[in-house]
Amino acid sequence: MDDAIIKVNHLAASYRRNTVLHDVSFEIQPGSLTGIVGPNGAGKSTLIKTMLHLHPPLKGSVRFFGLPFKKVKKRIGYVPQRGSVDWEFPTNALDVVTMGLYGQIGWLKNPSNLHKKKAYEALDKMGMANYANRQISQLSGGQQQRVFLARALVQDADLYFMDEPLAGVDAATEVAIMTILKDLKDSGKTVMVVHHDLQTVKGYFDHVLLLNRTVISHGKTNDVYTKENIAKTYGGDLRWMREEQTHVVHSIE
């Protein structure tokens, strides 16, 4: 079967002189919703950034739709970690969402009313229509994350990468975001999400990529999200609270 939408081959990357990723290889099937799971410092964010040329690779190759990244940029949407931007920036929610369209608008042109309308619809989809003109520093953490999601939606990409979209958000936002991710998947989009909550992996993702500097295991969640693989990923320092699914990860360095 050779219909993979993403092919990563022997990818390696370093961060401040430490090799963070080595020999990372995997293939992603179209229409899948994949959770990238691993301990702190496992290179989850670095993996996404390296795939999107935001971080230089040491070696290896990444192909999307069989093509290099540069040729397919416009078909890929990226949602950075919420903490990566300054929310005191003088702008409002609608404006941030409109930024997702800047690539399509092109040079020397300003966003038209049509672009604003699209951005407003995306905000509405995230339940944020009432906050369109709100200064972004006045939004709660969950609302800020919804704005980021709306910005990704408005890009109308085929492939989405999201870095911890559920980190530090309220329960309602978590439900709203997961609904949108499932909608995206159902409409044939492919989504990769860096995720940190081991308890929800089974319920949220149909595929899982267990990562700790290299791929520990990757495949359908039901097949690979096993006690053994999780223990292998987290270095065995994992205590099972109950024999089923609830467990706690102790901080390891």
Binding site: L54, G77, F89, T91, V96, M99
Partner: peptide, 17 residues
């Protein structure tokens, strides 16, 4: 708009080309 986006979120700007 390019100044705005590269000041606010350079990573997104780069991913948009």
């Amino acid at each position: 708009k390019e100044w705005k986006i590269t000041s606010f979120d350079p990573a997104l700007a780069a991913s948009l080309g």
